[in-house]
Design a binder for these strands. Sequence first.
DNA 1: TTTAAAACATGATATTTGTCACAATTTTAA
DNA 2: TTAAAATTGTGACAAATATCATGTTTTAAA
Lengths: 228, 228
Amino acid sequence: MSKCEQCIIRQLNSLQHLSKEELIRMSNCKTSKTIKKGEAIFEEGDRLKGVFCIREGVCKVSKMSENGRNHIIGLVTKGDLLGERSLISDETSNLKAIALNDMQVCFIPKEEIMKDLEKNPNFSLSVLKDMANNLKQADNVIVDMAQKTVKQRLAETLLNLQAKFGTNKENVIDVYLSREDIANIIGTATESAIRLLSDLKKNKIIMFKGKQISILNSSELERISQGF
Amino acid sequence: MSKCEQCIIRQLNSLQHLSKEELIRMSNCKTSKTIKKGEAIFEEGDRLKGVFCIREGVCKVSKMSENGRNHIIGLVTKGDLLGERSLISDETSNLKAIALNDMQVCFIPKEEIMKDLEKNPNFSLSVLKDMANNLKQADNVIVDMAQKTVKQRLAETLLNLQAKFGTNKENVIDVYLSREDIANIIGTATESAIRLLSDLKKNKIIMFKGKQISILNSSELERISQGF
DNA sequence: TTTAAAACATGATATTTGTCACAATTTTAA
DNA sequence: TTAAAATTGTGACAAATATCATGTTTTAAA
């Protein structure tokens, strides 16, 4: 099993602020897991016993609405931590995490993380900063959901996906989502998402073949997301 | 000027975890401010030099959308802290705070708070828990905004207002908001909010005279918010 | 490879919501 | 106190979006 103190993934998140000794201790109590495409890392209502550090793959983090539809709150990928919040607030998870492709994750037990949070102010301040940023981000999403049209949100989501996941050499956005998943990110009916994607294609603003989506005209997409 | 170590407001937020010495130090560097109805505590883009502890009054915390409309993210009232997030992430504020009535707030300089965050793990863990809760709450709002109809959101907002502010002896919800503010909380046009409020009144689910709103049938309101 | 299931797509239609116009009422300030 | 401004309220209509029905294509499993 690989060692935390040598792991490069750690450089991508708050764990980079841990000392060498703390990392060695962590390495000794962590476990590695493989999660297959479609499987859950955890479900709504689960009591998490630790946090997950994503080494490989992507998962969708979602929540059931009172209307019985699923809403995707975020996509979590290499280098991200998953589950800190339920751990810190000491409640069962309000979210569900499903792998979009095969994943490699490390599991770090709760006690280990909590010990570090209490003993290492650099670490806890980093987690705090992270949460402050997430909260700011969440505010933006709330305003977008409340004020933007479905078309605007779709345009913005496509830009966000490209910014987060980048593109391959054929200019295809490096994450494959079903139309339903896209609809569940922007909060609309699958049919509406499909229709609007087709519109964008017809107007040569994007191109797609199945789940492979490319942005052809990002400045126009930007304009659309701002309501023009 | 009153002393932090004797202040009962502090018991309502994370400041309760500070030691007596920390509170005395804080008391010596804090300043008290009066903010009149309609005035801003801070604006979007301001660089905050500290946090505000609300002693009296209510303010709305809002953000401009790209569409040019204002969206109210939250209402902040007695006992709440305001501004910790911008402080922690060390960025200019993404939010604006406007007093809904005359307010009394204490201002605690940034250096003081940051010192306590680094030195007192109990305090920083409490702030962390607070943020984790806010983030969970934000997730719920995102899903509501994305999936619920305007009518559902209005019903839920009325219930939330009553839960947060309570009622006076005449059963009137103890916060006065304009129709426009209500519309800006649920993310709809003012006219739509007015129409739906009138509907609820016609069906004897609520009652109102101007800004004084009473809930007559909260179980029905609950049903509506859940989509029936 | 064949077949069933899932995902994608599109049309028709109903519902929700926004926009504009304007009137009535309330609040604010001179 | 009175005039101006802001807020509240309502109707008519347009635009956005959801829903339902149905067909096609793609994917996965036997």
